[in-house]
Design a protein around this nucleic acid. Sequence first.
DNA 1: GAAAGTATGTTGTAATTACAACATTTTGGG
DNA 2: CCCAAAATGTTGTAATTACAACATACTTTC
Lengths: 214, 214
Amino acid sequence: MDISVLHNSILFKGFDDTEIAELMKALNAAEKNYKKGTMIFSSGEITDKLCFVTAGGVTIESNDMWGNRTILNLVGKGQFFAESYALLPDVPMLVDVCAAEDCSIVFLSMKSLADLNDTIRARLLANLLTITTRKNLHLSSRSFHTAPRQVRGRIMAYLNTVSVQKHSREFDIPFDRQQLADYLNVERSVLSNELSKMQRDGLIRCRKNHFEII
Amino acid sequence: MDISVLHNSILFKGFDDTEIAELMKALNAAEKNYKKGTMIFSSGEITDKLCFVTAGGVTIESNDMWGNRTILNLVGKGQFFAESYALLPDVPMLVDVCAAEDCSIVFLSMKSLADLNDTIRARLLANLLTITTRKNLHLSSRSFHTAPRQVRGRIMAYLNTVSVQKHSREFDIPFDRQQLADYLNVERSVLSNELSKMQRDGLIRCRKNHFEII
DNA sequence: GAAAGTATGTTGTAATTACAACATTTTGGG
DNA sequence: CCCAAAATGTTGTAATTACAACATACTTTC
């Protein structure tokens, strides 16, 4: 197991190595590996496991009965997912979680939270709050990216956000074309087409997942 | 101030009247009234106030420079909003908050959280976690409602969710036509038109904000 | 209860998207 | 290096949506 990435995570912020080791034990930490494309959770499942990506990445997505995929979020190395379901253990998952590439996930049992002493628990809860509130902002962001009615507007909304985050007009995005299309809720072919037009119009330059805003 | 609605809120779950009174003081609780249409927060503002609706309701929305409105959420009596921004006090708001009708809001200062003792704080943080995780599920829900490419699919996705929540095929929705259109990210006229077609097709019956799924 | 204002429904046309089919480029084994 | 597979780009047509303009219904106020 990759210790350093967990030690640097938001969840354990402010905890020293000894405390983290104890918490890992108390929360039944267990790591598992997944091949690209594997489904880690399916819609309808129940879980009390807070999940942490130690390697690779996963997509949080919804797949309807006609095979349409909507990507809500991409969770990369060093980030958490399923925190809402772990903390509301009655609620069945509304989403699928899928390995976007080969990946390793650490599972932490949240039902064990109640056993911790108040001080440790308060510190951990404060960190969990940071995780959930940040996730909230991510979900809001996606809403703004999909809000424009037209494909070009959605692309620009998304690219602007990434550009601001990376403090640069030139950056890589974590999505391939199909994933970006499913994230922005548009047809892949329409996305490709629009990206071409935007390059012809001198708005952007792009090659694969490298983008430049002009 | 309407005490009972605050006492029954998720935030104070498990606290007795004396504790709640102390907490209200510690968190500088203050109530304010707003007329329908008033903007309570604007995009870009910073706040550390957790907000609670004691009467009426507000919309969490995004208004772009062309006057297009996207409603992310409708927050009614007994519910909280701005919790993400209150808990991440560096982050400027991405959204506007607008009084959907005449309403009363209680503001609770979250910067005072650190002063509480561990036990009280752990209990309060646990409740805050419930608020943020539920908000997360709400935001996810909206993503599913706006995921279908076609207007009819979006309407059905939304109505199904409401129907399941209310355990009935017949129910009222909290939106008027313009709000529903802005929530589902479609044109109001297209929404009205599609609702008419769906009634002709025998899928639903509706009058004003009362709906029945057939 | 009339008038004014607001909300909702209807319709037509221009613009956009969905979808399918196919071309081209890139990637990963052997 | 070549081949197969995957990813990305292109194009055309049918279907859908955006937008504007207007009709109707419902509410509020005087």
